[in-house]
Write a protein that binds this DNA or RNA. Structure first.
Length: 272
DNA sequence: TAGGCGTGGGC
DNA sequence: TGCCCAAGCCT
C-alpha cells in the first residue's frame, strides 16, 4: 500500500484491511475484486490485485506465513527489491540494503552532493547504500529506518529542513552551495490520458453491485435513462471527461487484460 | 530500460 | 491554479 502512496493516506485503509483480513489466508479466500473494492482510492489498483495474489501464494507456498528471506519475498507478486528488503529488515530484523526514494535522496545529497538522485535507481546507488550499511543486524535495521525517516521528515524533496538536520555539517550538497538539480524531472501527464479514463472506469466498477453494461460507458448520460444503483456519481465524472470512444475502448480492454475487470452477463465488473 | 500505471495534499 | 511528489513494480 505504501508503494508510491503517502503513509497518512494508507493508514485508515490498512486498518480496515487488517480488521477484515487478519491473515493472508483470509484475503486469499475472497475474490480479487473484493481487494480492489476495499482498496478505495489509494490509486494504482493493480497493487490490490497483486497483494491478493501474494496472499494466495503465501497461503499455498509458504504455509500461510509471510516468508522471511529476500529471495522468497522478491518472488511474490507486487514485491520488488525495495519491498522485499524492507519486509526482511523491518519485519524480521534482517540485514538488508533498503533503498527507497527517501534513502536515495539522502544519499544523493549527503554523500554525492547532488540535489536529487538519478531518474532511475542505479547500480552505483545500490553499491553506495550497501557500503554504508552497518555490519550487525540490529544496527543495520536502525540505520535503514533512520536514513529513511531523515529523508521523509527532514531531507525532503522540496524545501528540505536543513536547519533541523542533525547531519547538515556532513552534507556534501550543502558544502557545495546547494547546487540545483542537473536535470528536470518530467512530470506525468494526466488530463486527457488513458490513465485518467481507467481511473474513472474503475471508480464506477468499484461501486457497482451488478455488471455494468457497455452502454453505460459509451452512451450519453441523457440517453441512458437510468444507471444501476450507486454508480451515478462516478459515472457522471467519467462522462465529464468526454473521452473519445477509442480511448474508452483502450481503457476497458486494458482493464480486462490486467485482470482488474471481467465480463459477466454482457457487462463489466471487478473480478469475482 | 523507459514508460505505463492513480490519487490527493501541499505549495 | 497547476504542478510536484509520495515506503515502486512490471514489462
Amino acid at each position: 500500500m505504501l508503494q508510491q502512496t503517502p503513509v497518512v493516506r494508507v493508514l485508515p485503509v490498512w486498518h480496515e484491511w487488517l480488521k477484515r483480513w487478519p491473515t493472508p489466508a483470509a484475503l486469499a479466500g475472497e475474490p480479487a475484486g473484493e481487494a480492489v473494492r476495499s482498496w478505495g482510492r489509494l490509486g494504482y489498483p493493480r497493487r490490490a490485485l497483486r497483494l491478493h495474489a501474494a496472499a494466495a501464494a503465501i497461503t499455498s507456498d509458504h504455509n500461510g506465513r509471510v516468508p522471511d528471506t529476500y529471495p522468497e519475498l522478491l518472488a511474490l507478486p507486487g514485491v520488488g527489491s525495495y519491498t522485499a528488503a524492507a519486509v526482511a529488515a523491518f519485519a524480521y530484523g534482517r540485514r538488508e540494503t533498503v533503498v527507497d526514494t527517501n534513502i536515495r535522496r539522502v544519499h544523493a545529497r549527503l554523500v554525492s552532493g547532488s540535489a536529487l538522485p538519478a531518474p532511475a535507481l542505479t547500480a552505483a546507488e545500490m553499491r553506495l547504500a550497501a557500503s554504508l550499511l552497518p555490519a550487525d543486524d540490529g544496527s543495520s535495521v536502525r540505520w535503514n529506518a533512520a536514513v529513511m525517516e531523515l529523508g521523509a521528515l527532514v531531507c525532503t524533496a522540496r524545501a528540505p529542513k536543513c536547519a533541523a538536520c542533525p547531519v547538515s555539517d556532513l552534507c556534501a550538497w550543502r558544502a557545495a552551495g546547494e547546487p540545483p538539480p542537473s536535470y528536470v524531472p518530467k512530470g506525468q501527464a494526466w488530463h486527457g490520458t488513458d490513465r485518467q479514463v481507467r481511473g474513472a472506469v474503475v471508480a464506477v466498477l468499484r461501486l457497482a453491485e451488478t455488471p455494468v453494461p457497455p452502454d453505460m460507458f459509451f452512451r450519453e448520460p441523457a440517453d441512458l435513462g437510468f444507471a444501476p444503483a450507486g454508480i451515478g456519481v462516478p459515472l457522471a465524472a467519467l462522462h465529464r471527461l468526454n473521452s473519445a470512444p477509442e480511448q474508452l475502448e483502450r481503457a476497458l480492454a486494458g482493464l480486462l487484460a490486467d485482470g482488474l475487470a471481467e465480463m459477466h452477463g454482457g457487462g463489466y465488473r471487478l473480478p469475482a
